[in-house]
C-alpha cells in the first residue's frame, strides 16, 4: 500500500505516494527527481546520501521517507543561491581542490554545512572529526579540510 506525503525539499513542496519501507534517498532520487544525494554504500557508512532534515544532518539512505512528511529537507541542490551563485563552501571546495570524482561531494558539503551551522569556527581536528562520517576515495581529504577551514576563517 502507498501513503501520501509531502516532502518539502529546498523550499518547494513535492506531493508523493510511497510505500512504507521506502527510504528518503530513493524517494528524493526517483520521485522528487533530485539526484544530487548519492547512494554510496547503502549501509550508512559513507555519508554520500547526507541531507539536512529540519536543519540536522541525516543519512537519507537510512531514514524512512514517510517520517520526513511535512518536514524541511535541504539537499545539495538547495545549497546554491536562487541566482545560481555557489554557496561559499561549494566555491571553497573548487578553489582548494576538495573535489575529484565528485561522488562524495554532495554529502561532504551537507556535512560541512551542518558543522559550520553548529560551530562557525572549528579547528582542523574538529573539521576532520565532523567529516569522518563521510568517506572520500579520491582527494585524500586535505583539500576538503582546507576548504572548510577557508570558509570558517571568513566567518
Amino acid at each position: 500500500m502507498r501513503y501520501d506525503a509531502t516532502l518539502k525539499v529546498n523550499g518547494r513542496a513535492y506531493p508523493v505516494a510511497i510505500e512504507p519501507g521506502r527510504n528518503l534517498l530513493s524517494v528524493l532520487r526517483s520521485e522528487v527527481g533530485l539526484t544530487g544525494a548519492k547512494e554510496g554504500c547503502d549501509d550508512s557508512e559513507c555519508g554520500a546520501c547526507m541531507v539536512l532534515l529540519d536543519g540536522q544532518p541525516v543519512n537519507s539512505c537510512s531514514y524512512l521517507a514517510l517520517q520526513a512528511d511535512g518536514r524541511e529537507i535541504v539537499t545539495i541542490e538547495g545549497l546554491a543561491g536562487e541566482d545560481g551563485d555557489l554557496h561559499p563552501l561549494q566555491q571553497a571546495f573548487l578553489d582548494q581542490g576538495g573535489v575529484q570524482c565528485g561522488f562524495c561531494t554532495p554529502g561532504m558539503l551537507i556535512s560541512a554545512k551542518a558543522l559550520l551551522d553548529r560551530n562557525p569556527s572549528p579547528d582542523e581536528d574538529e573539521i576532520r572529526l565532523a567529516l569522518s562520517g563521510n568517506l572520500c576515495r579520491c582527494t585524500g581529504y586535505s583539500g576538503i579540510v582546507r576548504a572548510v577551514q577557508a570558509v570558517a576563517e571568513q566567518r
Binding site: 519501507g21 547503502d42 537510512s62
Partner: peptide, 27 residues
C-alpha cells in the same frame, strides 16, 4: 515502533532483518 531508523532501516537494507510488516512511527 520506529524512531530514528538508524538501526532498523540499515538492518533491513543490509539484509540483516526485514522491516516489520506494520510500522508505527513515534518520532
Amino acid at each position: 515502533p520506529i524512531a530514528g531508523g538508524t538501526d532498523l532501516v540499515v538492518g533491513a537494507r543490509g539484509g540483516k532483518a526485514p522491516l516489520p510488516d506494520a510500522l508505527v512511527a513515534i518520532h
